[in-house]
């Protein structure tokens, strides 16, 4: 019985084809995950109930994805004030840049959270009493909106204020919709809307599905490479 020996070059070609095909399969899987992300991003459901901040998030830990966009309430005292220039504020169907007033709210147990009170006024509002805040919580911003200067925050990110406070900070920030004193008196401010933020995952579902198909088709073609000559001889005109 004759045993056909497989040459080294055949083996190396097969290995290379297999590796390239694996890369294409992985690229297809990556696109499939992107498609799933796009699908999920378009189906955000947020509870309308107002939750206590400590019930849905913890200081010093990442904001849980389920907590993002929730309406929350908390009580405490403002200990620091900042401005956040060049932030995009929803106005009608579009957005306009504005400088926002941001304060650090100290909550019992040496915890703190950034609260966006609204558009910054030229006149500084002194708030020394305890306040109750109701607003929507968002994940921290990851890209700068302005240049660093003085007491301003380049983005809404508690990581930027860790150097000026010893409080254990909650992740993310809250856009206040209501503020009141402990006696129940409302505090006025130039409030901004707090819409549900839909995470922007680039692309469309079907576009990503197409790429999945293309990558996997290319993987299949690469896998057919070692048999190409045989296939050509069989099918060729």
């Amino acid at each position: 019985m004759r045993i056909r020996r497989i040459s080294r070059s055949t083996i190396s070609k097969a290995v290379v084809a297999l590796l390239i095909a694996l890369v294409f399969v992985e690229l297809g899987i990556w696109q499939l995950h992107r498609a799933q992300d796009v699908n999920k991003a378009g189906k955000i459901t947020v509870s309308k109930d107002v939750a206590k901040l400590e019930d849905i998030s913890s200081a010093g830990a990442n904001l849980p994805p389920s907590a993002a966009n929730r309406m929350v309430e908390m009580s405490g005292r403002y200990v620091k004030a900042f401005s956040a220039p060049n932030q995009l504020v929803v106005r009608g169907n579009g957005t306009t840049p504005a400088t926002l007033e941001v304060r650090l709210l100290k909550i019992s147990g040496d915890r703190g959270i950034l609260v966006v009170r609204g558009i910054e006024n030229t006149k500084f509002q002194t708030l020394t009493e305890d306040v109750k805040v109701v607003g929507r919580i968002y994940p921290r911003q990851t890209s700068d909106k302005s240049q660093p200067s003085g007491n301003s925050l380049t983005r809404l990110d508690p990581g930027l204020v860790t150097g000026v406070t010893k409080l254990s900070l909650y992740d993310g920030y809250v856009i206040a919709q209501l503020e009141s004193t402990t006696y129940g008196l409302g505090i006025r401010a130039n409030r901004i809307p707090a819409p549900i933020q839909i995470s922007k995952v680039a692309g469309y579902y079907w576009q990503h599905i197409t790429y999945v198909f293309i990558w996997w088709l290319l993987a299949l073609l690469v896998l057919s490479a070692p048999f190409y000559n045989r296939l050509r001889d069989k099918m060729g005109a």
């Binding site: 576009q207 197409t210 293309i214 088709l217 290319l218 073609l221 050509r232 099918m235 060729g236």
Partner: peptide
Amino acid sequence: TWIALVHGFTYPIYVLAAFHYCLKARKSF
């Protein structure tokens, strides 16, 4: 965006047509 979508959906058909033609025309890999 429809352009990218249509191109994306029809490119696989092009790939198959090109592959089949190349086999028939006995082209090298």
